[in-house]
Every structure is written in C-alpha cells, then in structure tokens.
Amino acid sequence: MTPLYYAISAVLVAWHWVFTNVLHMNPDGGATWVLSIIGLTVTVRAALIPLFVKQINSSRNMQLIQPKVKELQKKYGHDRERLAQETMKLYKESGTNPFASCLPILIQMPIFLALFRLLDHHAANGSGIAFLTEPLAESFGNAELFGVVPLKATFLDNGGSLAVQVVAAILVIAMTATTFTTQRQLMSKNMPADALSGPYAQQQKLLLYVLPVVFAVGGIAFPIGVLFYWTTSNLWTMGQQFYVIRNNPAPGTEAAKAKAERDRIKAEKHDQKHGTTSGTALEATVVEEPTVDRRPQQRQQPKKQSREQRKKSGGPSGSPKPKPEGGNQ
C-alpha cells in the first residue's frame, strides 16, 4: 500500500495547498479538508476515464451479443467445455472482454482502501505518512465540518454527537441511492430487450440490489471523510454514465430511440430557422411530375383509293374539280 499512500497523499495535500494558499481558506477547517477530498476524488476519476470508456464498450458488446450467447447455450448446452470454447471465441470475434466492466471497480478498491487507512488510521491519530506530514495529519484529525462534525468520526463511533449521526446517515443514503440509480439507469435505458434476460441480465439485477445493501451496511463504519469520497465518486459515475447513455447509446435501446427522436426534432428546428429542408423532409415533399409524351405526332396517311374512286372524287385528294368559268364551250 505504500506506493498508493504516496500517490493519494500527494494529490490530497496538493488540493489542500490550493484551497489554503490560492483561495485563502482556513487550513484547519473541515470545509477545506472536505473540498480537498472531493478534489482527490475528481482527480482519481478523471484518470480512470480511459478505463471507463473500455468498460462502457465492453458492457455494450456484452449486451449486443447476448442473443448469440443464447443460441450457443441452446446448441452446446449439453457440452460445457464446447460451450465455453465457443463463447470465448464469440468474445474474441466481437472484441468483447467480459472482465473489462470490472476494471474501474477493481482499480478503485485499492485506492479506496488506501484512502480509508490514510484517513481512519494515520490522519485520525495524527501520525503522518508519505506526503501527509504529522502537522497535516493533526490538522485533518482535528478538522470539524460545521464546527461540530469531526471528519474522522463514523456513524457508529460518533462520540455521542447527533450531528455526526445525521451527517453520516445522509451521506450513507446518498451513497446507496446513487449506486442504485446508476445501475438502474444502465439496465432500464441502455440495455436491449434481448439482453434483459439471461445470465448477464441476472447478474446485473443481482448487483442492482446487492451493491446498495453492501454499501449501506459498510458505510456506517466509514469515517465522514471517506463517505464524502465515495459519495462524490458515485455522483461522478452517475453523471458520466448519463452523458454516455444520452449521447452514445447502445443500438436497439430506449436511449437510442430517445436520441433518434431528439436528433429529428433538432433537424426540424434547424430547417425552420434556416428555411431549408432536411434530406428526410425533402424526400417526403418531392412530388413526381406526370410523364408527358413530347414525341411529334405522326401525320395521318390518306386512305388508299382505286382509280374509279379518284375519278369520281375529282382528284387524288378527294376534292371535286372546279368547273370552268363561262359555261360549256
């Protein structure tokens, strides 16, 4: 844990220096240390964005290939070894890593544990470690939010303070609610209908209800400072996921339908503003002109007549011969 102690304490102390020397906040104030913890959270989560992108892509691929996974289960359900081989082959062909969705959580857990030890043991006892020197550790150990809530206190170890219990309970509820909302948002809006059944969907449903309970039970033993870290991290995850689902949803999901509708409305407003017609609207308004035959009409040939008929009619054209003026000569 020593390398993590150095990394986390460096970021925490750097944010504390910014709020103290740049914004001229009280270096021993609870608000200063809370904002430093929030700054640490934002820094850690920003560094994990590439892993989050991999997680989103992996989760999306897992959702989209669920129908194929079901077909393999029907086909090779009697042969577990063959089923495992074909499933891994499908993952490889689709570029899906089933473990990529766990990477952000797996990486955050050591960071969380290091922060927990840093705040709960070293800072709370005033024993410095890494870049968190003893004066800074004592400053954090004595810091109180609102002047009555020590950041090292927990819901269980509250020193008889009702304010500590209230603040801790609010943070635990917020941490639990954000965890549930984030998972619920993913399942309800960014999972195709085919992916809502099967082993992967059952796993997601299990996590939907189990994780909030785990965090709620464990949260009552976390220091107030750690609760601020975890709640901020959950809020970051919820906002980040909302942005991804809204702007880059998985195909065939409710989020994809909503985005298509927003794009259509946006295109209509753009056309009305600029007096143009989008491609779709233009196709709908084109009216086919009736086909007009512009070829020259053929001259009607005169009816063929016999010699006797031509004599009687007075000429080839059928018009009678004019009589000479002056009568018979």
Score class of each variant (00 low, 15 high):
S233F: 05
L208W: 09
F222G: 03
M238I: 07
M238V: 00
I220S: 01
L227C: 02
Y229P: 00
G219M: 13
V226A: 09
P223N: 14
S233Q: 03
Q203N: 11
L235D: 07
L206N: 13
Q240N: 06
L207P: 08
F228Y: 12
T232Q: 03
Y200F: 15
T232W: 00
Y209V: 03
T237P: 00
I224Q: 15
Y200L: 15
G225C: 09
T232F: 00
A221H: 10
I220W: 08
F228H: 11
P223L: 12
P223Y: 15
L208D: 03
P212S: 12
I224A: 12
V214I: 14
G239S: 02
N234I: 02
T237N: 07
L227V: 07
G219P: 13
A201R: 10
F222M: 07
G218N: 15
L211F: 13
L208Q: 14
I220N: 04
V214T: 03
G219N: 13
Q202S: 04
G219A: 11
Y200M: 15
G218H: 13
L208F: 11
Y209W: 00
T232Y: 02
Q204S: 07
I220T: 08
V210M: 12
G219H: 13
Y200Q: 14
L207H: 01
A221V: 14
G225D: 05
A201H: 10
A201D: 11
T232R: 00
W230R: 12
Y200G: 11
S233M: 04
G218C: 14
F228G: 06
P212H: 11
W230I: 14
W236G: 02
L211S: 12
L211C: 12
G225L: 04
A201W: 04
S233A: 15
L211K: 10
F215K: 00
I220G: 05
T237Y: 08
L207W: 10
Y209D: 04
W230M: 13
G218W: 14
A221F: 15
Q204N: 10
V213Q: 05
V210G: 02
L227N: 02
Q203Y: 08
A216W: 08
I224E: 12
G218T: 11
V213F: 09
L208M: 13
K205S: 07
A221N: 13
P223H: 13
Y209G: 05
